[in-house]
Design a protein around this nucleic acid. Structure first.
Lengths: 136, 136
DNA sequence: ATAGGTGCAAAGCATTTGCAGCAGC
DNA sequence: GCTGCTGCAAATGCTTTGCACCTAT
């Protein structure tokens, strides 16, 4: 059902894909498809919004980018590799702090192994009110 | 700006709110606004979709329900209290296992406090391939 | 030449908002 | 009776899809 060894899907090299890959490579923070689209436009390397969505979706399925959905329902994308970390986001001003949690990574793996699950990945985001927004 | 001691917002008791609160009290899993709306309709206690959204939003701000956004961009709601746990989801068959992680809860709080953040909440989901789907 | 890629415009969905009528207090 | 609550319909915003043209191979 997942296509037999007949039509291996070739991946064609295009200006748009190169631009998207380059942008993702530079910024290793999460970016929405709309932000990425705007960024490419400002750079004078415009790519159709549709293409941005389709490319990011393809990259996601290929496991080359991680994706998560923020509180506004926007899907955020980030190139996979690099250092793996999580985010502490202020729910008022949107300020974001990167945090690393080896303990959590280990816990997640252990918990998954305990239930016989393999090929594990996880999403973890912390939300709160930052010091600046707390003083009000 | 955050309203002075002038107009304390009273909360009015209505059939709709009671129905929503009751439904949330029975099912302590995450539910989308649409699912909740449909559930109430089937029970013969129809509540307008708009009202469901507004009530859930109000409950969220009041801190009486937790909310998260799933991979499809739908906002999910769950009554706050009760046992807090996370999910281990099979990316192939969708089977879901509930897992509790006191260690993670503590880690999250500590990490947030370290950066001066308050009013913390977090979302954590594990994805993998379950034993049944691994044999293939 | 041909299949895959691109992008405009339109469709889909979940959610929000305007507004007129209804119901707690 | 006043004010908040309700819910229909319309609007909004992100994302997906239809379709005709373009281009890397």
């Amino acid at each position: 059902m997942t296509d037999p060894p007949s039509t291996p899907p070739p991946v064609r090299q295009t200006r748009q894909r190169a631009a998207i890959a380059a942008a993702l490579a530079e910024c290793d923070e999460f970016m929405s498809a709309q932000q990425l689209h705007e960024l490419l436009r400002q750079r004078g390397n415009p790519v159709g919004l549709t293409t941005v969505y389709r490319s990011l979706q393809a990259l996601g399925e290929a496991g080359e980018v991680d994706l998560l959905v923020n509180d506004d329902g926007e899907t955020m994308y980030r190139r996979c590799s690099a250092h793996h970390h999580h985010h502490l986001v202020c729910r008022d001003c949107g300020r974001t702090i990167e945090i690393a949690g080896p303990a959590v990574e280990n816990w997640a793996d252990a918990m998954a192994a305990e239930h016989g699950f393999t090929d594990i990945s996880h999403t973890l985001e912390l939300f709160g009110r930052c010091p600046a927004c707390s003083v009000s």
